[in-house]
Computed example of a mutant assay.
Amino acid sequence: MARTLSDEARRILGLFEDVTGATGLDCLVYDDRVVVLVARGDMGEAIGPGGEHVGEFEERLGTDVKLVEDATTPGDFVANALAPAAVYNVTVSENGDTVAYVEVDEADTGVAIGADGRNIEAARALARRHVDVDDIELT
């Protein structure tokens, strides 16, 4: 899967790696926040002690940052992308399009969707780019 990063996204990933010491694999840039895909196993380093690393990164960027950890399976990837929502199960179905059906704790449905749908849209964008999932639907 070829992914094209804008100059701004490449600059942000470089800053992310300099500040946190973790590996950033992808970056989605929105008006009000940045979503960084972090290499599997690097999330602790990205966050840092007491949130120190991600806090400094947010301060230097001047915007909110959401970190998503990469995963080895599409189901785990989608669950990570929807965190901190409690995801019970992810079923990936391929009938023409590949759709991930996600069972989320009822109390966390709003967290998974996010304000104006921003969390689920970011999860969909990352899933399309990294695990060939065309859509994510909450059940």
Rank of each mutant, 00 (worst) to 15 (best):
A2I: 08
R3H: 09
L5S: 04
L5M: 01
S6Q: 05
R11Y: 02
I12T: 10
I12K: 06
L13E: 10
D18M: 11
D18L: 10
T20F: 00
A22V: 03
T23A: 11
G24S: 10
D26A: 04
L28K: 00
V29A: 04
V29E: 04
Y30H: 02
R33H: 00
V34L: 01
L37M: 00
L37G: 04
R40K: 15
G41W: 01
G44D: 05
E45P: 09
G48E: 06
E52G: 06
H53C: 08
G55E: 05
E56K: 12
F57W: 03
F57E: 02
E59I: 07
G62N: 11
T63P: 05
D64G: 11
V65H: 11
E69Y: 03
E69S: 09
D70K: 05
D70S: 11
T72G: 12
T73L: 03
G75T: 06
G75R: 05
A79C: 04
A79E: 06
N80H: 08
A81Y: 06
A81W: 02
A85Q: 01
A86N: 14
N89Y: 07
N89R: 14
T91Q: 08
T91R: 06
V92A: 14
V92P: 12
S93W: 09
N95A: 11
G96V: 02
V102P: 08
V102N: 11
A107S: 15
A107M: 10
D108T: 06
G110Q: 13
G110H: 09
V111K: 15
A112R: 13
I113H: 11
G114H: 13
D116A: 15
D116F: 12
I120W: 13
R124F: 09
L126C: 01
A127N: 14
A127T: 14
A127P: 12
R129G: 09
V131A: 06
D134L: 08
D135F: 12
D135H: 15
I136Q: 05
L138N: 15
